[in-house]
Amino acid sequence: MPELLAIEVIYALPDKQQLVSLQLAAGSTVREAIEASGLLPKHPEIDLAKNKIGIFGKLTKPDAELRDQDRVELYRPLIADPKEVRKQRAAEGKVMKKGAGEGE
């Protein structure tokens, strides 16, 4: 009897998360887990050629081999560039500091 791996595949949306627990044969890949999860037909916005994927927060490739107890994560694209958001906040902070001292 071939060894089975206990795998979770997760896709988080802004309002909920989808978690699917699977049992796959040893030697299965990340792509096979995603396909077996049934998440692709439910979420047509997932494009494995574009969406990043990971195992426990570390980016990985679809052809990476899974280990027992792995959690495969499907990441959504970022809405805003974090570096740009930080620059905007810093610029807003400078403007607020200048305006705060004007009435003194």
Results as ranks from 00 to 15, higher is better:
residue 44 P to V: 11
residue 43 H to V: 05
residue 11 Y to S: 02
residue 89 R to A: 15
residue 43 H to F: 14
residue 15 D to S: 14
residue 82 P to I: 06
residue 37 S to A: 08
residue 64 A to Q: 14
residue 33 A to T: 03
residue 42 K to W: 03
residue 67 R to F: 06
residue 50 K to Y: 04
residue 31 R to Q: 15
residue 101 G to P: 00
residue 98 K to M: 08
residue 4 L to I: 01
residue 31 R to S: 13
residue 54 G to F: 11
residue 84 E to L: 14
residue 33 A to H: 02
residue 104 E to T: 14
residue 44 P to H: 07
residue 68 D to Q: 08
residue 89 R to T: 08
residue 65 E to H: 12
residue 75 Y to E: 03
residue 38 G to P: 07
residue 59 L to H: 15
residue 39 L to G: 04
residue 91 A to S: 13
residue 66 L to C: 08
residue 23 Q to P: 02
residue 81 D to F: 04
residue 51 N to L: 04
residue 57 G to P: 11
residue 99 G to P: 00
residue 48 L to H: 07
residue 64 A to D: 15
residue 35 E to V: 04
residue 75 Y to D: 01
residue 44 P to C: 12
residue 42 K to S: 14
residue 26 A to V: 09
residue 93 G to E: 15
residue 79 I to L: 14
residue 5 L to R: 07
residue 87 K to F: 08
residue 63 D to T: 13
residue 101 G to L: 14
residue 89 R to G: 12
residue 94 K to A: 11
residue 45 E to D: 15
residue 60 T to H: 06
residue 61 K to E: 14
residue 25 A to K: 12
residue 10 I to W: 01
residue 1 M to I: 01
residue 45 E to S: 15
residue 51 N to H: 07
residue 64 A to F: 07
residue 36 A to V: 09
residue 39 L to S: 03
residue 100 A to Q: 04
residue 43 H to N: 15
residue 95 V to S: 09
residue 78 L to N: 11
residue 70 D to Y: 06
residue 88 Q to M: 13
residue 94 K to W: 05
residue 92 E to F: 05
residue 48 L to T: 05
residue 43 H to T: 09
residue 72 V to H: 10
residue 46 I to D: 10
residue 100 A to E: 11
residue 70 D to F: 10
residue 103 G to V: 13
residue 3 E to A: 01
residue 65 E to N: 10
residue 3 E to Q: 04
residue 67 R to P: 00
residue 24 L to A: 03
residue 88 Q to W: 11
residue 29 T to Q: 03
residue 6 A to P: 01
residue 35 E to Q: 11
residue 102 E to M: 12
residue 31 R to D: 03
residue 36 A to H: 08
residue 17 Q to S: 12
residue 42 K to R: 15
residue 52 K to D: 05
residue 86 R to G: 09
residue 55 I to D: 09
residue 77 P to E: 03
residue 65 E to W: 07
residue 46 I to P: 08
residue 51 N to A: 08
residue 92 E to L: 13
residue 70 D to V: 00
residue 89 R to W: 07
residue 51 N to F: 03
residue 31 R to T: 11
residue 77 P to D: 00
residue 38 G to C: 03
residue 41 P to I: 08
residue 49 A to Q: 14
residue 5 L to S: 05
